[in-house]
Simulated assay, not measured.
Amino acid sequence: MTVTLRVEATATAGGLVLRPWLPDDADAVIEAYSDPDIARWTTSPMKTSEDALRWLERQWEGGETGKQFSFAVCEAQLDGGYGTLLCDVSLRWGDDGREIGEVGYWTLAHARGQGVAPRALEALSTWAFDAFAGDGLRRLQLIHQIDNLASCRVAEETGYRLDRILPAYPPYPRDGHVHVRDAV
């Protein structure tokens, strides 16, 4: 399933386009994973074009199999196209069906503090509840390490309430927060 989502501009922020990842995005993926503020929270180092291509292939495969939907979030252009890459948002499913999905994201350094992640996550969450209601989707969860305060703020801003503390478990060295948002 190929999906593109659009988020309208607001008085203080431009519009966004959530689009499938493209081969030309490889350099931006390397840039993202080279950022210490992203690398700190990930378990997969990304240093080469081959690493980035493998990452992109996993995103495409997830969309083809329906196990994961990953979007490159870009600035919307007036002509309906898209501009600079800002963020990644994704929805993935476990092996136990589609009642509960997990969302995740990262934001490039130049886009932080502009409300990009909350707006993109809101668009993804709304789309997921609409698109997968017939599959029984009843809850989305967002998991982050306990000291990732930015992710905690994004979760709260987008209606994900703190549900529980997740004990540290390799490869994650610290406890985590599980935030949840239920279907309305």
Rank of each mutant, 00 (worst) to 15 (best):
H179K: 01
F69V: 07
W93V: 04
R139C: 14
L162G: 09
G115A: 09
G113I: 00
T42E: 15
G176A: 11
T43P: 01
L124Y: 01
D35E: 11
T158H: 07
T84P: 01
E31Y: 10
P171R: 12
W60S: 13
R54A: 15
Q114A: 15
Q77I: 00
Y169I: 13
D175I: 13
P118H: 06
A109C: 06
G94Y: 04
A28M: 08
S49Y: 04
L124S: 12
A131F: 04
C74T: 15
P173C: 03
P20S: 07
E102L: 02
P171L: 11
D182F: 15
R92K: 14
G63I: 06
A128R: 01
M46N: 06
D182P: 02
R40E: 07
D88H: 11
I100W: 06
R181S: 08
L162R: 13
P23E: 09
Q59I: 03
P45V: 06
I165V: 15
P118E: 03
T84S: 14
A150I: 00
R92D: 13
A9G: 05
E156F: 11
A76I: 06
W106M: 01
R98N: 06
R139G: 07
L53N: 14
R112T: 00
W106C: 03
L86P: 12
A150L: 00
Q141T: 06
F132M: 05
Q141E: 15
R174A: 06
T42I: 08
A52P: 01
P23V: 07
L142F: 09
D24V: 12
D27I: 10
G80H: 04
G134A: 10
R161F: 06
D96T: 09
D130L: 05
T4G: 11
E64V: 11
L149Y: 09
S49G: 14
G94T: 07
D37Q: 14
G66T: 09
